[in-house]
Structures are given as structure tokens and as C-alpha cells.
Design a protein around this nucleic acid. Structure first.
Lengths: 324, 324
DNA sequence: ACAACTCTGTCAATGTTTTGTAAAGGTTTA
DNA sequence: TAAACCTTTACAAAACATTGACAGAGTTGT
């Protein structure tokens, strides 16, 4: 039925070598000796690789430089390899091979993935979207994945939703996929037990959770212990979550600007319920629409990716002081 | 301490030596003389060790430097060695035959986990809840996890929510945790490319997604290719999702009984939009409350865990026929 | 007490396997 | 036509395996 599933990505061996960090000769040797990858061929016999192959080779390279013998791990699945490296006591992040992609290369790569992911969203292909995400996380690393792929992707989805190219259901599907990815991202950097805690949600009437998800992931990567509550919760419930977890920060995402006063009312109630000792952070496409209330209530308004990280670090530091 | 995937990792002797602190020569001597470890071999004869072997050698090394004679302790089990080092009297464990837990044991085990998980929900401890879930999946297997842990847990959460012991926010937190687990569950059994497709969601006004999540997971485990859309979607959006994915089934969860006519209206509209070729399945705590409409529209009403699986299999079979 | 024996870690000698790299010579691609 | 690929074959360093031996420490038997 769907024979056209994987013809999207095709790379020749030199590209693969650059991106994975494994020399061409070695890639061929690994294929010949252990079937580490099994690329398709062009009519003329040239090897044609997929994104998955690249992710594979990257992980294999990491694993071998970590002391594993290539013959033993060559046929492991992507997940096996990820587990293997996750359980490593020594996560060597040294310049393992001469080939280190430059910053501009990585950004270009991220843009590349962005297009592919957006195409998958447009085609409503959850499986393909997830697969692209997985590969991108391996290739870009969690940080760059968030900053250069996820953030711009969500921004674009927001735009296209306005123009009518996308429907609400596209956003729901994307949320769902990203939500299941949090598992991988979280596993990549387990947080400390004494990490500061945060609640992430959206107030009542705000049904879009992509922004909130992004905030949750970013906070986790910054070392926070995040409890994500999903979208559309009344102030009392959110406040209850804050109390239960003893969170020292609460982040809300406002994506959709409404003219009624629900959001304003909810924000005021929330502030009353959580008090002044819990930082209230608000971000999202439409946060500026509520500027007046934000100022009145006294919230930290996220301006950009970097700004959010800055806020997180400041709060984190302050929290550590209080603890000691 | 998460993943326990020990059957995947394999090391050669030098790595083992570095990790365990026992020189390669000595490792071989201990094997030759006392069978302290019994590694497998490569085709060429190289020793191949597991994580367990490394742990063993570490403990043996500690014990010998503590004055114990290697010949005496070489064949101790991992637990024996741990006891030994804790200065506890060595309780020699029984011959370790591969005892497979009986069915009743497993159900008991599941109940045990149920209590632990519910306690974590009540305490609003997402981290602990996730950890219990992870362990349960490994110990029980996906099937039993769903049937004997997740299903009763969600049922109980529904009950306690009514009595006021739990707040809505508890349910949101639980949904969030379960949602990120879908990643593990899905990876445990990757579905075929030609698997029948299904959309899972809840209609507008139905904000509780636990039931829908459960249905999605069950369908995935039954070999379906599921696109999960989250909760609270209007009929047009759900129908769009069905069209986009060419799904042959649509499952909705109705947890909350409302007296307005929104649900009834949405169901009628949905049926019109998706036509008769797409199976419409409805389940959830409050499905019976809408019996009249369900009959009128002609939906498959889920009665129980087993019943849902039966429906899934029938649809799956019918779908296969049509394909061929 | 003293010789004989066992336990244990270490080494050396010698041969094999693994694995990254490279050269030679032909083919495909742009 | 040049650059990039392909296959085959080869090579050498590093890592392993096996066998056998040796010496210090502790034990045993007489």
C-alpha cells in the first residue's frame, strides 16, 4: 500500500562519512565484515544511505570509542545502541574522530530536518515524523534539537495554522508525537534528586500544548525536575499541582489570544493561590497580547529561547542558595 | 537506575579489565582455574562478557582484597557476593534454576504494583510513578501490564476522583506519565507496514484522556498502527485525521457523562463525516450513558478488555481480506 | 622444624583474530 | 574528463588465546 515510504532520504558515502564521523573506507569495511549497515544501491552500484543509517553509524562510532568491539555491536538496533550508551559509566564526549561538523553545518542540518519534519506534519504521517525526530536527536544532540529544530518547527506550525494550510488536528498529532519523545530526551540527561521543581501547563481556555511541551523539555534539559500537566487546567488545579510537588516555579504557555477575560482572571487567581514564593513564568505566541495582566500580576515573560534559559538558570541558582 | 537491558551489552576482555579492575591475565586465570566467569566466545575464540560478568568480577576483586580466598568465593552468586561484602552471614542462595512465575504470581505481582502506583499518584509523585511503570513493564510484560496493572489503576483513579480523594490534576499528571510511556510500549512490538490504521481521540467536551490512551496502547499492542490525537477534538478534526491516515477504525473514549447534547450531536456528525466504511468504536466509563445515540448511530461499544481485543482482531482480519 | 604441597598472582613465548587503513585498477556520475 | 565510487587484496598494529612456568605465602604431614 505504501511503497513510497523511505525514498525521501538518499545520501552517498562521502556525505555519510562527514555526518557520522566514520571514514568512508571504514563504513564499507563495517558493511562488508559485519553488515553494520545495508544501504541500497543505485543502478550503477553506488551505495545509498538513509538518515537512520547515519544515526546508526554515529552511535556505533561512539560505542567503539567507548571500548565496545565493533564486531559485537555492529548488528544492534538503534534502540539497543542508545541503551548501551545510556548505561555507560564513562560517556566519552571527546573529539573522537578528526571529523567534527562545524556549527554552520549543524544549523544547516537542522534546517534540513526541519523541512522533512514539516513535510511529515503536512502529510499527517506520525510514524515518519517520529522517525525523523529520533534521527535528529542522535545527530544534533538534545540541545540543538530543541533550539534549531523543534523551536522553529513549532513556530512554523503556528504560522501555517493561521493561514489555513494546517488544521487543528495537525497540531494535535504533532503534540502527541512530541509528547512521546520526552521519554528519550529525559533519559538523555537524568536530573539530580535535589533539582529545582517546576510545573508546566496551560490555563483554562488555552488548548494548544505545543508551547508548554517545548517549555517542559527545555526546562528538563536545563536540569529541572518538571511535572507536565497538559493543557487547559483551571487555576485551582494548577495551584494544587504546585503545592503537591513543592515546585518553586510554574510555567504557562499562552498560544491563542482570546478577547474574553478568562485568561486574565485565571492568571490573577493563580497568583493569589501560589503566592509570591513561586516564580510565575509565561511564554507563548500570544503572551504579549496579555501584557497588561502580566505586568499587573508580576510574571516573568519569556522573550526568546535564550531568555528562557537565562530565567531558568537564575531561578535555579537562587533556589540552590535557599536550600543550603 | 532505569533500563535493565543486559542481554544486549557485550564486551571483550580488555574493556572488562578496565571496568572491573581485574587484570586481563587474572580474569583468564580465574576462569581457567575456578570458572569464576564463563564468557561466551566469538567465532574466532575471543571471550565475550556481559554486564553481569563485569559486576561479578568487581565484587570478586573487592572480596579478595578484603581477605577472602578466590577459590572459595569464585562460584558465589552475585547476591552472595553482595552479602559477603556487607559483612552479613552468607546466605547461600538456592540453585538458580530458571523459575518462571506462575500466572497467579504474576497477577499478585501486578496487584502489588497497582498499590505502589496508586500511592505514587496520590502522593503526586510523577517520577516515582514512572519508575514503577517502567519496572512493571519489564517484570510483567506489555500484555499483563495493560490488563492487570493499567486497566485497574485507571478504573480506581476514576472512582477515587468521584469520591474526591483525587483531584483533576492527579489525572492530568497520570495521563502525562502514561503518555510518555507509550514510547517504550510501542518499541516493544514494532508494527508491520501494512498494519490496519486507527485514530484514537475523545470528542469535544470530553477532557479526560486516560481511557483514550489505554485504548491506543491496547490497539498498538494488538498490531495496529495507531495515531493518537489527544482529547477534546471537534468532529470535523477527528474526521480529517481519519481521512488523512486512511484509517479503517476510529476509537473514542467517553469518561464523563454530561446531560447536554454535545456528545450525541458530535457522534452523529462524526458518523456522517466518516461514512460506513470506517468502524466507529466507543468505550469508557460513561459510554453506557449514551446508549441511545450509540445504537442509533451504529457504533461498536466496548464492554471489557477482552471484548475490545476481540473487536480489534475481527476488524484486523476483515481489513486484511479487503487488502488482498 | 622442615620438606612437600597448594593457592594465587604474574609473566613470557608463540600463534591467531580483529580491525583500521591503503593501494591497485575498473566503473559511475556530473 | 575529473571526481567520487566500487571491489579485491593486502598489510600491520593491537588485542586475544593458550600453554607453561615461577615465586611468594600459607598449609599440611611427619
Amino acid at each position: 500500500m505504501t511503497g513510497f515510504n523511505d525514498d525521501s532520504a538518499q545520501y552517498l558515502i562521502s556525505t555519510v562519512s562527514k555526518r557520522s564521523g566514520v571514514k568512508s573506507d571504514l563504513v564499507r569495511a563495517w558493511e562488508r565484515r559485519y553488515q553494520a549497515v545495508t544501504p541500497k544501491r543505485t543502478a550503477g552500484g553506488h551505495r545509498v544511505y538513509t538518515d537512520q543509517d547515519i544515526a546508526r553509524l554515529k552511535l556505533l562510532n561512539l560505542a567503539t570509542s567507548n571500548g565496545h568491539s565493533i564486531s559485537q555491536i555492529a548488528q544492534f538496533s538503534l534502540d539497543d545502541l542508545k541503551n548501551l550508551l545510556n548505561n555507560e559509566p564513562v560517556a566519552i564526549t571527546q573529539p573522537l574522530n578528526g571529523i567534527t561538523p562545524s556549527a554552520s553545518d549543524r544549523i544547516h542540518l537542522a534546517e534540513d530536518y526541519m523541512e522533512k519534519c514539516y513535510a511529515a506534519v503536512l502529510a499527517f504521517d506520525a510514524k515518519k515524523l517520529e522517525s525523523h525526530f529520533e534521527n535528529a536527536i542522535v545527530e544534533l544532540g538534545s540541545e540543538a534539537f530543541i533550539e534549531h529544530l523543534l523551536t522553529p518547527l513549532l513556530t512554523r506550525i503556528g504560522e501555517r495554522w493561521k493561514t489555513g494550510e494546517l488544521r487543528p488536528v495537525h497540531e494535535h498529532m504533532t503534540s502527541s508525537v512530541i509528547r512521546s519523545l520526552t521519554y528519550i530526551l529525559r533519559n538523555n540527561n537524568p536530573c539530580a534528586a535535589n533539582a529545582p521543581r517546576m510545573i508546566v501547563s496551560t490555563p483554562i481556555g488555552q488548548l494548544h500544548e505545543l508551547g508548554a511541551l517545548l517549555a517542559a523539555i527545555m526546562a528538563e534539559l536545563s536540569g529541572w525536575q518538571v511535572t507536565y500537566l497538559g493543557a487547559n487546567l483551571p487555576a485551582e488545579e494548577i495551584a494544587a499541582g504546585v503545592k503537591f510537588t513543592h515546585a518553586c516555579a510554574l510555567t504557562l504557555s499562552l498560544s491563542f489570544a482570546t478577547d474574553d477575560h478568562v485568561v486574565a482572571k485565571e492568571l490573577r487567581r493563580l497568583k493569589k493561590l501560589i503566592g509570591n514564593n513561586v516564580a510565575l513564568i509565561v511564554g507563548g505566541r500570544s503572551a504579549s497580547h496579555y501584557q497588561a495582566v502580566l505586568n499587573e500580576v508580576g510574571v516573568l515573560n519569556i522573550q526568546s529561547y535564550g531568555h528562557f534559559r537565562q530565567i531558568l538558570n537564575q531561578l535555579s541558582a537562587r533556589n540552590m542558595e535557599q536550600e543550603s
